[in-house]
Amino acid sequence: MSQSISVLLADDHVVVRSGLTRLLEQNSDMIVIGKAENGEQAYRLYSESMPDVLVMDVSMPGMGGLEALRRIIGRWPDAKIVMYSMHENTSYAIQSMAAGAMGYVAKSGPTNDLINAVRQASIGESFLSTDMAQKVALHSESSDDDPTRRLTTREFEVFRLLAKGKTVEDIASHLDIGHKTVANYQTSIKQKLAINSPVELVRLAIRYGVIPKA
């Protein structure tokens, strides 16, 4: 029998981590070797266990999945990471893939999608579910309509946190960067998105599905 695919899970909900463990380990070619509940832990456990594949939620308290993805790929460019998210919105999928993720799977999709994504990632192949691939393709055709595409991964994460009402101090602490750096990102985001106020920023984030409507 071929060697099992070692998987590290990162999700802030213990029920989700348990469910994913059961789902993946039903397959004889997969074994879950660690579980993280936030981005900081995912980064640390990745460095300790060097799994074949990391399955990580996009939105977690503290360092989110996108920031953890950016840092892990920055240190280990060959890391194979599948983002697993409640966000079916294409902005998150596009940002994840642009930052180096091998796959993006919606939590609402078929369970087989995640299994296929892990297998594909383990051999260096990317994976998007059929539904998400179609959305991304359609989104790409009309990419000029979505200004969030102009943001870098780091800018997108700052934009998302600002839209959720986080202060500059909160964001600096979340991302472990200086206040001045966050302020510089804020200025860049406003310029790229042509917005002048926090209200405009929130409206734009809701319009393009970056945050849900209240």
Score class of each variant (00 low, 15 high):
N89S: 09
M60K: 05
I189N: 03
V118Y: 02
H13K: 04
E25F: 07
A68S: 13
L8F: 04
D170C: 14
N89F: 04
G100T: 05
I94E: 01
K192E: 01
S18N: 13
S108N: 10
A214D: 01
I171F: 06
L204E: 01
I72K: 07
H179S: 13
H87M: 07
M102Q: 14
A121R: 04
G64V: 07
G109K: 00
L9T: 12
E141L: 15
V202R: 08
G109Q: 04
K166A: 15
A36D: 09
M83A: 11
L162F: 11
R203I: 06
V202G: 01
D144S: 13
K164V: 05
S188A: 15
S85K: 11
T148P: 00
I189M: 12
K35T: 14
Y92D: 11
L151F: 05
K35W: 01
A10I: 02
T181C: 00
P51E: 05
R22S: 12
A106R: 10
Q186F: 01
H13M: 09
D12N: 14
H13W: 03
G34C: 09
K192S: 11
D52M: 09
G74F: 05
D145M: 13
S59D: 12
L161Q: 13
D176K: 15
T148E: 05
G39R: 07
S96G: 10
S197P: 02
G165S: 05
V182H: 08
R70A: 13
A101F: 02
R44S: 10
M1R: 06
S47F: 00
S91P: 04
L114F: 13
L151R: 06
I211W: 00
S173F: 11
L161M: 14
V7F: 11
Y46S: 10
M1K: 05
T152Y: 03
L201F: 07
W76V: 15
